[in-house]
Design a protein around this nucleic acid. Structure first.
Lengths: 192, 192
DNA sequence: GTCTATACCCCGATAGAC
DNA sequence: GTCTATCGGGGTATAGAC
């Protein structure tokens, strides 16, 4: 059985994930990461010989799991898929406000900064979006929606959550998330 | 009447706007800007004594007008507000694809990187989002929707467009934009 | 695996001639 | 208004002892 002691590698990945979420890829330095992770620069390059890109890709995968966990939590809170999706917007709003409007989507900023220029990172980003869509799609299918509708609605739900979280963050207000939650529920309701 | 000759200041703002769109705030250097704008570093600081932040704020305002123009063009293409919104998703998809998936929303990356840490830029970002919502809201009001519904739907439309453009960019596919366009039309249709 | 020191480069910003 | 030179600092990455 694995020990629960937090190893150096995991501390580095966690610190990177949080810093990328708040400062983006170009705004985060490896020295800052090693400082916040309480690891030396040598340790960082020992675990991630591919340098900053490899490190960022690992952090994106970490953020992927984190965001997927939030989605599963929200979607699991109700049988009704419309209500379940609005539960996700509430979870996002609370986390965003409680972080002082700092912690938006863990990967968006890095995704935008590296699109088309860092293949290793890009692949992790593409997989994250696909995972999140799959989580939503599964919920809609389980609720009895058709296969095509579920797949398309899942894509729209993830896009809308991303956009609403961005709007809420720059406005420092939960409102964009709540309004989007209401409209997504209404949209899903038209498919029953 | 103003001359149409492109002055140095305008060249600098244009170059900055394009570079921020593609590389983000931290990923774009002032030296690179001066190079692409064919202006010297001295000229850049002459027109923007506030440095990189002031320059970025001006570029955000430029992107604001650009994106608003696209919205007005799409929204003006049909009397029906639902069809008009999907026209916007089509315009975004074409521009994104034709740029080799490089030119997404002109301000998103910079907005995320500077939120909570560069007040001058943040204000320009907040104003841009408000402008875009206002353009959509006006269209919905003109189509006969209620005041509250128009305001809320406008917020959701802008959020959804932002999220869908992000998804389309990382997936290098027009599909997220087209699917979102279809769903937004359906949502708006439920309010007639 | 961990640590320090350092090579090499580019960053934002400024000074001051023209 | 435009230009060049430069300052001080921080960036990524590596070397090599322990």
């Amino acid at each position: 059985m694995k020990t629960t002691t937090t190893g150096t590698r995991e501390r580095i990945v966690r610190a990177t994930s949080r810093l990328l979420q708040r400062q983006g890829y170009e705004g985060t330095g490896i020295k800052q990461i090693s400082r916040e992770a309480e690891a030396t620069l040598g340790s960082v390059y020992h675990f991630f010989p591919g340098g900053k890109q490899e490190l960022a890709a690992a952090a994106i995968r970490h953020g992927d799991l984190e965001f997927a966990g939030m989605l599963r939590e929200g979607l699991g809170s109700s049988e009704d898929p419309a209500e379940a999706v609005t539960a996700c917007t509430r979870l996002l709003a609370v986390a965003l406000r409680e972080s002082g409007w700092q912690d938006g989507c863990p990967i968006t900023s890095t995704a935008l900064e590296t699109v088309g220029r860092a293949p290793v990172i890009e692949q992790a980003v593409v997989e994250a979006f696909a995972n999140w869509r799959a989580v939503v799609e599964e919920k809609l299918l389980a609720a009895g929606l058709g296969a095509d509708d579920s797949r398309e609605l899942a894509a729209t739900v993830i896009s809308a959550l991303e956009g609403a979280e961005l709007a809420a963050q720059v406005a420092r207000s939960e409102e964009p998330l709540h309004v989007t939650g209401k409209h997504l529920a209404r949209l899903i309701g038209t498919y029953r």
